[in-house]
């Protein structure tokens, strides 16, 4: 099935730059921020945002990695379970402004799991959500605070965010699932 490129590396670079500005603006600086990337692709995105924020504000913002496997609501029904990876957040998040970062916002179930995981680690002042793509089809009352691009999509389509650190290049593609639905 042919993949259509929705966004190029340049587009992603500009989106992250804009989101970095928006995060600083909304939180009046970066002093109390903690960036938490959701495994797998949220983690490199969080690291890039931290660099952008440092260049703008001169502050090193702590960056963590969150694994939600232990908090999924579909644990018993999954065909095969996810490999649990280590959650690694280098600082206490209590009273911090936590920015949760993921590549795609879809049903919202991963974000629900991520919020449960975060409140087990402390009591943040706020949790905000930044995503590169919001593709709709929410199943829970969840929305993002920072959105790179809204992509109205059909459930039969697949949206794939590639990041250089993992996939070798930056791009967003859309394709129709084999077999459709």
């Amino acid at each position: 099935m042919p993949k259509k490129v929705l966004m190029t590396a340049e587009d992603i670079r500009r989106i992250l730059a804009r989101i970095a500005h928006e995060i600083i603006e909304k939180n009046r600086g970066a002093r109390y921020l903690v960036l938490v990337g959701m495994r797998t692709r949220g983690v490199p995105l969080a690291k890039r945002l931290a660099v952008l924020i440092r260049n703008l504000e001169g502050i090193e913002v702590p960056v963590g990695a969150l694994d939600i496997s232990l908090y999924r609501d579909d644990f018993s029904s999954l065909e095969s379970k996810p490999v649990v990876q280590r959650t690694d957040i280098p600082t206490d998040i209590t009273d911090k402004q936590v920015i949760l970062i993921d590549d795609v916002l879809y049903t919202g179930r991963s974000i629900r799991a991520a919020m449960d995981a975060l409140v087990d680690l402390g009591r943040p002042k706020s949790i905000q959500l930044a995503v590169v793509i919001d593709r709709g089809h929410r199943e829970l009352p969840i929305r993002a605070d920072y959105v790179g691009k809204n992509v109205p999509s059909s459930r039969s389509e697949e949206i794939q965010v590639c990041v250089e650190e993992i996939d070798g290049n930056d791009k967003v593609t859309i394709s129709t699932k084999l077999g459709g639905s």
Partner: peptide, 12 residues
């Protein structure tokens, strides 16, 4: 790395 219900991690 297809985005199923958001990023599906590697499976077991």
């Amino acid at each position: 790395s297809t985005v199923m219900p958001e990023t599906s991690p590697p499976s077991l």
